[in-house]
Nucleic acid binder design. Structure first.
Lengths: 217, 217
DNA sequence: GACGCTTTGATAATTTTATCACTAATCAAA
DNA sequence: TTTGATTAGTGATAAAATTATCAAAGCGTC
């Protein structure tokens, strides 16, 4: 089977969503000096069944050797190709509050395939100031940056009240994927993909399973 | 059916994971002054089918009225009870880097059921300094804070290299749920729940669906 | 009050996802 | 070389999740 899959087969999104986890773990194993691994070992590390991992990978080709397992470096490479992160994607960041600063300062993006190429804010007082080497620009400058880098990915790190408006602007300017840190669900056209990060969603998921133990009660 | 469900029925985790999204949207509707809504309207806002929303809610009881829909305030209340966020949960935060600062400064936790009651770091230079009104404490002080607040939830916002060690410490001290911002999969006992936030995982998911357009290529 | 429109909640049907079970390949050691 | 222990890949099966369907109920209008 060809690497980027036979066009007849539609790969489930849930499979795609696991690949980055596999990749992250494989790169850790690689960094630890492991030459080979197995679906069983990976499954143990990730809390998944070995069958699931083999099945997931089988959508894209054959990467292992029976009796031996997978060559870590090779599988890393293949996954990077499948996910198209064997290169660096330009990303723009909207919002230069505390969160925007944390994201812009994070140095874990580049070696995993992403670089923040522009930071934007609407606050006049922030425009022109810097985060590390990056100058915060006016919202008006977004289009130019997107064009220059052919940027398809944006991070929204503005307050919830401004997020939809920012999203509309980004989409009008050609952004195809948005990572939204604002705690709202955006309304976007079908060709735009949005992923959300809202820590409270995770907390509220957790508390369902906890026995109640609140402050002042 | 009783509110917190008939013990015979095991509610799928995937259903639980959607409830916080429903709650978030309902509270938005409430803030906008909406008195009632419908599974159809909610579904439209969230990109889900109305049947799914009705089915999800049906695990917990009957909250709507045929022909009318759901009373927004009432359904909010019920979801808050189901998720046990009709109160404030104490949370501790480990790691006072940029991300830790962003989290500690965020004022969107409290009204959704959570309060950061302690911030900890291993860096001697940070200990004793403040984020807003919160004093950064030594890692050694974690146990006392957990005990004092009967804290069950922790946020890990330390580098990947330290995360497992911190997790082990937290678990030994009684933490039951961890929100992990470090880009690794933690190894934890079965009774501990971990949720992960790693933006790169989302980016790499997105790029699978994008046409390649990297920097310098 | 009857009628038309809407909506829920329940059940059935369908689709999707995960698991199982097995074959063939690989390797190390006897 | 043979044997035993592993392991990938895969078609079949089981489980889970989503979607479709529909009766009953509510509301507004005539």
């Amino acid at each position: 089977m060809s690497l980027l899959t036979n066009a007849l087969e539609e790969i489930p999104d849930i499979v795609i969503s696991r690949l980055p986890i596999y990749l992250r773990t494989l790169r850790l194993l690689d960094a630890q000096g492991a030459e080979v691994t197995s679906s069983q070992e990976l499954g143990q590390l990730l809390g998944l069944s070995s069958a699931q991992i083999r099945k997931d990978l089988s959508h894209f080709g054959e990467f292992g050797k029976q009796g031996t397992g997978y060559n870590v470096a090779y599988l890393c490479n293949q996954l990077e190709k499948i996910l198209k992160v064997d290169c660096v994607w330009p990303v723009i960041l909207i919002g230069a509050g505390y969160l925007g600063h944390a994201l812009a300062s994070y140095n874990g993006f580049e070696h995993r395939g992403f670089r923040i190429v522009g930071v934007f804010d609407s606050d006049e007082n922030k425009i022109g100031t810097t985060i590390g080497a990056t100058v915060i620009q006016s919202i008006d400058a977004i289009a130019a940056t997107i064009q220059r880098y052919r940027c398809q990915i944006a991070i929204i790190a503005v307050p919830a009240t401004a997020a939809q408006q920012v999203a509309d602007l980004l989409i009008a300017t050609g952004i195809k994927s948005i990572l939204c840190y604002a705690p709202i669900t955006l309304t976007v056209p079908a060709h735009v993909r949005v992923e959300y990060i809202d820590p409270v969603i995770y907390f509220q998921h957790m508390t369902f399973y906890l026995t109640k133990g609140c402050i002042d009660e």
